[in-house]
């Protein structure tokens, strides 16, 4: 119990100190001591983020290995994920070792594979989003007809018509994007910014519990 309290105390002191150093550093010039310390801490985060990707990949493999061994629903997909993950890692290692000869000499197969498979699949999925959205607007109206739902659906229709090659309603669409959408985006960002400030203050007061037992 006492050791838990000590760990919590040390964690709180560390978080508050680093938070203050970062604030002072970011408000100072880059070549001052606080500025240099803030830059150093940020570069530490970048290094940790790179290492964390390895942890993420291990987690992905562990989750899908677990699903496969327990034969949970959808386990065949887990095999595909595992085979592809291992295949891509092996390809990347072979790329880095410059092992390819003949026509493939100097090629980066892993990058090409990524372009050919990942980008194509993601583009196809992105194209489906339009239908999901149109159907969502339809469902919204079927669920309940309110002023806001009507406004949303009318806006979707205007933007879709305004984007067609015949330039129907294109001026209205431009006005919608430039005025209400811009205003809404700024309002959202200001709200999120203010929430961030107060959440930051809570962290600086040592009241955030995410790093404590």
């Amino acid at each position: 119990m006492r050791s838990h309290r000590l760990v919590n105390f040390l964690a709180t002191v560390t978080v508050i100190s680093i938070g203050l150093v970062m604030i002072i550093g970011l408000l100072s010039d880059q070549d001052t001591v606080p500025g240099i310390m803030a830059a150093f801490l940020l570069s530490l985060v970048t290094v940790i983020a790179a290492v964390a990707v390895v942890v993420g990949v291990l987690n992905l493999i562990a989750v899908h290995l677990g699903r496969f061994t327990r034969a949970e629903r959808g386990w065949p997909y887990s095999i595909v994920v595992l085979v592809v993950a291992i295949g891509v890692i092996v390809l990347r290692i072979l790329d880095r070792a410059d092992i390819w000869t003949g026509d493939l000499e100097g090629e980066r197969i892993s990058a090409r594979l990524f372009e050919a498979v990942q980008v194509s699949i993601e583009s196809a999925l992105a194209a489906l989003l339009l239908f999901f959205l149109a159907f969502a607007a339809f469902r919204l109206m079927r669920r309940q007809v309110t002023v806001w739902n009507v406004l949303f659906s009318v806006t979707v229709v205007v933007v879709l018509l305004g984007s067609d090659p015949l330039n129907l309603l294109s001026d209205t669409r431009d006005w919608l994007v430039e005025v209400p959408v811009n205003a809404g985006t700024r309002g959202l960002l200001i709200g999120v910014g203010l929430g961030t400030v107060t959440a930051g203050v809570r962290v600086l007061l040592g009241q955030d519990r995410s790093y404590r037992d």
Partner: peptide, 18 residues
């Protein structure tokens, strides 16, 4: 611990969503 699952981020996070 594996109840928290990471998915790689694609160009539009669609790999994650899928």
């Amino acid at each position: 611990a594996h109840a928290a699952a990471w998915f790689p981020q694609g160009q539009r996070s669609l790999a994650f969503a899928a």
